[in-house]
Simulated scan of single mutants.
Amino acid sequence: MLLWINGPFGGGKTQTAHEIRRRLPGSVVCDPEHPGFGLRRMLPPELRGDFQDLVSWRQGVVEVLDLALAGHDGVVIVPMTVTDPRYFAETVGRLRELGHDVRHFALLAERETVLARLRERGLARLLRHVAGKDAPLRRESWAVERLDHCLERLGEPEFAEHLWTDRTTVARTAERIAVLAGLTLAPNRDGALRGRLRRAWTGVRHIRFD
């Protein structure tokens, strides 16, 4: 089974994916951003745009995930924002055509909720203290610029299943996904502090400097 966790940039995809992996033995996270940024870095600076526009990225993601699903016994978890219906068909749709059990979930939240999360993720909190409260949003300009588009597009029926996350925790969102997918997660034994530290470390590990 493949769990594709979609959502706006800053919507909690990565945190949710790693929470599921932590509590679901045998599962792995396969992040399509890795080949995406690699392909982007191969291009001259003036040609670097959205790597999802590259056919090689879309085809490569399908090829690698097809291999992972065929060769790995556990659940494969993919945290990746895809809002273009054509690209969605060429990735999620194509994997389903290949016979894989793909469960897709779009994490949604109110605009202000996502903006607040963007201020807190990665190094944003540190920059907030050093350079002022608006500095993190300048660093996350790509995510902010595309936020309204992502929320509008991902709210369409073709991007269901929709999960609203404004008033829930990462752990509970992971549990909702597991229930909908027919999976059983190990109990969450993190206290409030330990959970916060774990999420902070996950955020630091996934900082992008591209």
Rank of each mutant, 00 (worst) to 15 (best):
Pro79Met: 07
Met42Asp: 03
Thr83Arg: 02
Val82Gln: 00
Val64His: 09
Ser56Ala: 15
Glu63Val: 07
Asp50Ala: 14
Asp50Tyr: 10
Glu63Lys: 08
Gln59Phe: 08
Leu54Gln: 14
Arg48Ser: 06
Val61Ser: 07
Gln59Ala: 15
Ile77Cys: 07
Asp84Cys: 10
Ala70Pro: 06
Pro44Phe: 09
Gly60Ala: 11
Leu43His: 08
Pro45Cys: 07
Asp73Leu: 08
Gly36Asp: 08
Pro35Met: 14
Leu69Ile: 08
Met42Lys: 04
Arg58Pro: 00
Arg40Lys: 15
Gly38Pro: 05
Arg48Met: 05
Gln59Glu: 15
Gln52Trp: 15
Pro44Arg: 09
Arg48Pro: 06
Ala70Lys: 12
Met80Leu: 09
Leu69Pro: 03
Phe51Arg: 00
Val82Thr: 13
Pro45Gly: 10
Gln59Asn: 13
Gly60Val: 09
Leu47Val: 02
Gly36Pro: 08
Ile77Tyr: 06
Val62Met: 10
Leu69His: 00
Arg41Phe: 12
Gly74Ile: 06
Ala68Phe: 14
Val76Lys: 03
Val78Arg: 04
Trp57Ser: 01
Thr81Cys: 10
Asp50Ile: 11
Val78Tyr: 05
Phe51Met: 05
Gly71Thr: 14
Glu63Trp: 08
Gln52Lys: 13
Val76Trp: 00
Val76Gly: 02
Glu63Gln: 11
Val82Asp: 05
Phe51Gln: 03
Gly38His: 14
Leu39Asp: 00
Leu67His: 12
Arg48Cys: 03
Val61Asp: 02
Arg58Leu: 09
Phe37Met: 12
Arg58Lys: 10
Phe37His: 15
Glu63Pro: 05
Met80Thr: 04
Ala68Tyr: 09
Gln59Lys: 15
Glu63Leu: 12
Val62Gln: 05
Val62Gly: 08
